[in-house]
Simulated scan of single mutants.
Amino acid sequence: MSGKRQNPPTVRLRRLAAELRLLRSAAQLTREEVTERTGVNGVTLYRIEKARARPQKRTLLALMDLYGASATQRADLLAVQSGSHDQGWLRPYHSELPEEYTAYIGFEAEARSVRNYESLFVPGLAQTERYARAVIKGVLPTASQREVEQRVRARIERQAVLTKPNPLQLWAIMDEAAVRRMVGGREVMVEQARHLAQLAEEPHVTLQLIPFDKGAHAGMTGSFVHMDFPDAQDPELVYVDTPAGDLFLESETEIRRYKSMFEHLQAVALDMDDSVKLLDSVAGQRD
């Protein structure tokens, strides 16, 4: 039997589906209860929450009314819904939004594996609390203490994906600059280097460092994250953090380009054992 091939859901549609699932869960409602109270067909609701169907605006409004969505959430979800057919997504940065509500964290929580290259930072999933606090204060110098602590808490909570029963597969490559830069002071960086070395012992984590003496390499253009997902209908994503906002890429051409870039970085980086030796050296030099 032949049939029309269904296009995979776009990154925006997937994010909309995830946010609606979270809102329904927060409202402590079953799908059956939502159907009874809104009149939205149960099959339709299921398809919306699985990113298999784009909700009509009136349906989205009815769901947000029932779930008690805030004004900010309503505006955000309506904007996502209006462009849900488009590939790619530059999500504007809003300093007033806490980090735990950003789209990236939602995708990371759903991912099967993450390949992360960082040129200047230790990857968020591998940061200690003190390093994370120092980084956030440095990158966001105008943030209030409350905002800093909110973001630190969100960053540390994200790391639960590495300790859950079926943990995220993390492959992180860092330029040596990420562990040499004195973020938060000597004591903080010794703790961070040792944490990285300990994390490298986990079977689902691979850490590699690119030493300074390797010279120029493909990652010098900037950091990025490549994610894939358990559901075959959810395409791979590439995430790039820019000053303008969160950039999500999903075209096959972009995915191939970043996968190739990561392969080049794997080849130029030290292997796991030598990377851990470099981390031990960094920690020892700072004791």
Rank of each mutant, 00 (worst) to 15 (best):
N7H: 04
E250L: 14
N116P: 10
R153A: 04
D241K: 03
V43F: 03
A111G: 06
A69P: 14
V34F: 10
T38D: 08
D274Q: 15
M189S: 01
M220C: 09
P165Q: 03
P235H: 12
G124F: 02
G215T: 05
D175R: 13
G88K: 05
D65W: 11
V40M: 05
K4G: 12
A160C: 10
A193I: 01
Y117D: 11
L278K: 07
E202H: 13
E149Y: 02
K137S: 01
K50H: 12
E33G: 06
T142P: 00
E118H: 13
A71G: 15
R151M: 00
Q159V: 09
D213F: 04
E118N: 13
R91F: 04
D65F: 09
H217K: 14
A269I: 14
A69G: 13
V135C: 03
G219P: 08
L247Q: 06
Q87G: 12
E110C: 14
E49M: 06
V238P: 05
G3V: 07
Y93Q: 12
I173F: 10
I48H: 07
K137W: 01
E19K: 04
T206C: 08
D271V: 02
P9Y: 03
E254N: 08
D280L: 06
R52K: 15
R130G: 02
A26N: 12
R58Y: 12
V268K: 15
G185A: 04
G68F: 11
V34P: 14
R146Q: 10
L23F: 13
S95A: 08
P123V: 07
R21W: 07
R37I: 15
L66V: 08
L13M: 02
P235A: 12
Y117N: 13
E187F: 00
E118G: 10
A18F: 06
A53Y: 01
T59K: 12
V188W: 00
G284P: 01
M64I: 15
E191S: 00
P98M: 05
Y117V: 14
E36G: 03
T59Y: 06
G39L: 05
